[in-house]
């Protein structure tokens, strides 16, 4: 059987896993089931309150019935599906292999160290999706080129603002403003057959898709508070996007 570890260490590990999952964009149900799986491997039972900024967790040792409670603040969210899938795989392997505390802890550390796609690949890929959206909305290839460049510059501004640690909504506003300014020049110089499609799609890369989908997933699972929080976050983001677009359209007197 597993070597008994102090409840304090176990709760720290579980909180670390929960917070990693939460910032990577997992829904609340997944966070809860993952940490109860890990807890069952360590012969504990876990009761927790998961919210967007804080996790409160109580673990109870199945043998001694002693319990321990700890609270952790969650850092800002940064969506990362690789972390979600690796933690999910690790939780199944931990159950089937009856991992020890040490093994789980090392695995989580190695998951945290995984590298991401480089900044430039992300920029190019997201710009291609901007162009793709433009095609979906009925733009021709010239429109798509303009959409590609507005998305590229917009995402660059967003990444820059994140790096300078601007408020999240202000970074979204700036990115949306700059991207739609570029798309508006497409309308003014009448580039392509359908420049309005470019304007409509140049800011779609900012849409908080994961937050909005997760909000309804949480609501379906009756995690009402988390669902409402995520929805509100999504609406705030959309609000700042629309504000940037509105300002650009006002400056160029479009519509």
């Amino acid at each position: 059987m597993n070597t008994p570890k102090s409840l304090e260490e176990i709760s720290d590990l579980l909180l670390q896993i929960a917070s990693l999952l939460m910032i990577s964009g997992a829904n609340t149900n997944r966070v809860n089931t993952s940490i109860s799986r890990f807890a069952s491997v360590l012969n504990c039972e876990v009761f927790n309150l998961t919210s967007q900024k804080t996790i409160i967790l109580t673990i109870t040792d199945n043998n001694t019935k002693k319990s321990f409670t700890r609270v952790k603040n969650i850092p800002p969210h940064k969506i990362d599906f690789a972390i979600i899938s690796r933690i999910s795989n690790a939780s199944w392997n931990a159950i089937s292999g009856q991992w020890t505390f040490q093994e789980i802890s090392e695995k989580i550390d190695s998951i945290k160290e995984q590298k991401k796609y480089s900044k430039y690949i992300t920029l190019i890929a997201v710009s291609f999706s901007g162009a793709g959206f433009c095609n979906i909305f009925g733009g021709d290839y010239l429109n798509m080129l303009v959409a590609f460049f507005s998305t590229l510059v917009g995402l660059f501004v967003l990444q820059f603002a994140h790096k300078k640690q601007f408020n999240g909504y202000i970074s979204v506003f700036l990115a949306s403003f700059i991207a739609s300014m570029l798309a508006c020049t497409g309308i003014i110089y009448n580039i392509g057959t359908n420049p309005e499609a470019t304007l409509a799609t140049s800011i779609l890369f900012l849409v908080p898709g994961v937050a909005l989908i997760n909000s309804f997933t949480d609501l379906l699972d009756k995690n009402v508070i988390n669902g409402m929080v995520r929805f509100t976050h999504g609406v705030m983001t959309v609000l700042s996007m629309a504000l940037g677009l509105f300002l650009a359209m006002l400056i160029f007197q479009i519509k």
Partner: peptide, 10 residues
């Protein structure tokens, strides 16, 4: 478009 976002989500 989906692949672009997928790479953004790592």
């Amino acid at each position: 478009a989906a692949v672009g976002f997928a790479i953004l989500f790592n």
